[in-house]
Simulated scan of single mutants.
Amino acid sequence: MPFIEESDLLELHKDIDKAQIINERLLDQIKYKNKEIKRNKIQRNVLAGVTGLFLIGALAITSFSAGVSSSTSFENRNNLLVSIDSLEAIKYRMDNLKRKNEELSEVKEFYLAKSFLEKETIYSVQIKSFVDNNLTLTSEALANTMLVKTNPFYSYSLGNFESLAEARSFRYQLVKMGFADAFVASYQDGKRIKIEEPY
Score class of each variant (00 low, 15 high):
residue 87 L to H: 03
residue 40 N to Y: 04
residue 34 N to V: 09
residue 117 L to P: 02
residue 166 E to L: 04
residue 193 I to G: 01
residue 26 L to F: 05
residue 8 D to Q: 10
residue 21 I to G: 10
residue 117 L to G: 02
residue 22 I to Y: 04
residue 13 H to V: 11
residue 87 L to N: 00
residue 155 S to P: 01
residue 158 L to Y: 12
residue 133 N to Y: 14
residue 105 S to Y: 09
residue 156 Y to Q: 03
residue 198 P to S: 03
residue 5 E to L: 07
residue 96 N to P: 06
residue 177 M to S: 10
residue 43 Q to T: 11
residue 115 S to D: 00
residue 24 E to I: 06
residue 15 D to L: 08
residue 120 E to V: 02
residue 146 M to Q: 03
residue 9 L to T: 07
residue 61 I to P: 01
residue 116 F to R: 13
residue 129 S to P: 03
residue 146 M to Y: 04
residue 198 P to E: 12
residue 50 V to E: 04
residue 44 R to L: 07
residue 21 I to Q: 13
residue 136 T to Q: 10
residue 16 I to D: 07
residue 19 A to I: 07
residue 35 K to T: 07
residue 170 F to K: 02
residue 101 N to W: 06
residue 64 F to N: 09
residue 85 D to G: 14
residue 107 V to K: 10
residue 11 E to Y: 00
residue 20 Q to V: 11
residue 151 N to M: 04
residue 39 R to V: 06
residue 87 L to S: 10
residue 193 I to A: 10
residue 112 L to W: 00
residue 66 A to L: 15
residue 21 I to C: 07
residue 188 Q to G: 01
residue 107 V to Q: 09
residue 199 Y to C: 05
residue 176 K to R: 08
residue 81 L to W: 14
residue 74 F to M: 08
residue 133 N to H: 10
residue 46 V to K: 14
residue 184 V to T: 08
residue 59 L to S: 14
residue 6 E to D: 13
residue 101 N to D: 11
residue 70 S to C: 15
residue 157 S to Y: 05
residue 21 I to A: 11
residue 136 T to H: 14
residue 145 T to Q: 04
residue 89 A to R: 11
residue 66 A to E: 15
residue 33 K to H: 07
residue 33 K to P: 01
residue 7 S to D: 12
residue 24 E to S: 13
residue 180 A to F: 15
residue 154 Y to G: 02
residue 102 E to C: 02
residue 28 D to M: 04
residue 175 V to N: 13
residue 92 Y to N: 05
residue 148 V to F: 06
residue 43 Q to V: 08
residue 47 L to T: 07
